[in-house]
């Protein structure tokens, strides 16, 4: 649904106006290496031939791969806090939105909802064990905000005439996979142009090989881990004997 909308805008917008949007990323491939401590990518862009010499309102959304997440609720049972109810939700594993104005000033709630703009407007496929999924989704958003994986920055688009720039923070816990950067131009509360660019996050060389080893050859991986531990334990006895 959303993809179709985006496609429709992409097709319709250039035809409707001379106005044109170009944007690019500082990098389209981000590698997680052993000393990865978070990073940043930059989205650059410009609005060409804007009417009224103003670029309009710009919204930049970065979405990570959708994943199935489980949110559990603890209840007070027999004096202890025990997980009792749960919901499973499909939501992006990373979500960052930056805008030139607070979202509410840019478009109506309906429009924002249609494009899933803003943490309050994410739509999830979900199953909740006690019927109402809304509190679970709100809890998930809270948890992801604490982890730095969900973020809203209502003043995150730096504008200079018709050019703009957005710094996208990538925290250390960023999940691997295919990401999508969507840039929207709003004028009078409507999307007049949009562009979508993918980028990828992956583990680099050694970490990637370990991850693949663990998942493709789990038996050898387990045995190797144990042998490594035993060798270290054995080695340390020689080290201490010499001293």
């Amino acid at each position: 649904m959303k993809t179709m909308l985006l496609a429709a805008v992409l097709l319709a917008a250039p035809a409707g106006a001379e106005e044109n949007l170009t944007s690019m990323l500082s990098q389209d491939y981000l590698q997680i290496s052993s000393n990865f401590n978070g990073s940043e990518i930059t989205v650059f862009g410009a609005v060409e031939n804007p009417p009224e010499r103003s670029a309009g309102d710009i919204v930049v959304v970065v979405r990570g791969p959708d994943t199935l997440m489980t949110v559990r609720r603890k209840d007070h049972i027999a004096g202890m806090w025990i997980n009792s109810a749960r919901a499973k939700l499909w939501l992006p594993s990373y979500y960052f939105i930056a805008s030139s104005e607070p979202l509410g000033a840019i478009a109506s709630t309906d429009t924002l909802g249609r494009y899933e703009l803003g943490l309050a407007n994410l739509r999830a496929d979900m199953v909740a064990s006690d019927g109402d999924g809304a509190p679970y989704q709100a809890a998930l958003v809270r948890a992801e905000q604490r982890a730095g994986l969900y973020r809203e920055n209502p003043a995150g688009v730096e504008m200079q005439n018709t050019a703009f720039r957005v710094h996208v923070p990538i925290p250390a816990a960023v999940p691997r996979g295919s990401y999508n950067v969507e840039v929207y131009i709003f004028r009078d509360g409507n999307v007049v142009a949009a562009q979508s660019t993918p980028f990828y996050v992956d583990q680099a060389g050694f970490e990637r090989r370990l991850y693949e080893f663990a998942h493709n050859k789990p038996l050898y991986y387990g045995v190797t881990t144990v042998l490594m531990g035993i060798l270290l334990g054995w080695g340390s006895t020689f080290f201490f004997r010499r001293k």
Partner: peptide
């Protein structure tokens, strides 16, 4: 937070 999040199924 009485809600807790686990990634995955």
């Amino acid at each position: 937070d009485v809600y807790s999040l686990t990634a995955g199924a």
